[in-house]
């Protein structure tokens, strides 16, 4: 299980003079679940976008299995088939039914047979509890249902690596759970995933390893128990502290009653 699937080496990404990622290096083993956390604007989303070749990079390298990822490369389409990505915004295609949304890429990109793709799509939709929505349009679904369809749409391409970019950030709290449960299920099945999230207890439950990003660099990384319970760096401690609240009672007298 220790074979390296993805190797990121001193990755640098700039927008103009603004350096977003400054020499990021890490490896992902097959079957590993990496959770990336950090304050907003630290480059988490950009990191995922670079791995999916949505952004050209200015330095370093990203190697997936044998292939180098950088947008100008010729074999982009085959690379993207190996990497599935789910975005924060609901990015289903509004003019297609749920089933068509899931089937378009396997049929048009991988040229697979319609019957075979449809059977798999329905099975996957069933797994996330949405088989009865196969012929609905995205506008008829809740936010949580849309994100589950988006995950199914990625899975149907049989990607080796799944990227999740704050997939629950735009959801109402009661819908977050249903999406996270699907992701936990994927992790239990040995999927290789890189997850950007703000759900700290979820991160703790799903991660094999946590990367803490700040200011475009990896400040700290380690197993989740260590990172969340005993963060080594001062910046990580400060970041985790923002998720804690101290009890404040306006009227202590009332609370005692």
């Amino acid at each position: 299980m220790s074979n390296i699937m993805l190797k990121v080496d001193s990755l640098t990404k700039c927008f103009g003079d603004n350096t977003i990622l400054n020499g990021i290096s890490f490896d992902v083993k097959a079957g590993e679940v990496i959770v990336v956390v950090g304050p907003s604007g630290c480059g988490k989303s950009t990191l995922l976008r670079c791995i999916n070749a949505l952004e050209p990079i200015q330095g370093g390298s990203i190697v997936l299995e044998e292939d180098t990822i950088n947008p100008p490369s010729k074999n982009l389409a085959s690379l993207r088939q190996k990497v599935g990505m789910v975005f924060q915004s609901y990015d289903l295609f509004p003019h297609m039914t749920v089933l068509k949304n899931v089937m378009i890429a396997p049929m048009k990109v991988q040229k697979r047979k319609k019957e075979e793709v449809e059977a798999e799509a329905l099975a996957l939709l069933d797994r996330v509890g949405l088989k009865d929505k196969a012929n609905s349009f995205p506008r008829e679904l809740s936010g949580g249902q849309k994100q589950r369809v988006a995950i199914v749409r990625s899975l149907c391409m049989h990607p080796d690596l799944l990227l999740f970019d704050e997939v629950t950030a735009a959801l109402d709290p009661e819908m977050v759970r249903e999406v996270l449960d699907v992701m936990l299920d994927l992790a239990a099945n040995g999927r290789t995933m890189i997850i950007v999230t703000h759900e700290m207890s979820f991160a703790k439950a799903i991660a094999d390893r946590v990367l803490f990003l700040d200011g475009g660099s990896i400040v700290e990384q380690g197993p989740p128990e260590q990172f969340f319970d005993h963060p080594q760096t001062e910046r990580a401690q400060r970041f985790l502290h923002t998720f804690e609240f101290t009890a404040v009672k306006a009227h202590p007298a009332l609370a005692e009653e």
Partner: peptide, 26 residues
């Protein structure tokens, strides 16, 4: 929206497929 182009590309659809199946129909 831009994320329609991006999610189509992220699924591996080529530029012309993105226009043909995703952008132009909408």
């Amino acid at each position: 929206p831009r994320h329609q182009y991006e999610s189509s590309e992220a699924l591996g659809l080529s530029r012309s497929q993105t226009y043909l199946y995703i952008i132009i129909p909408q």
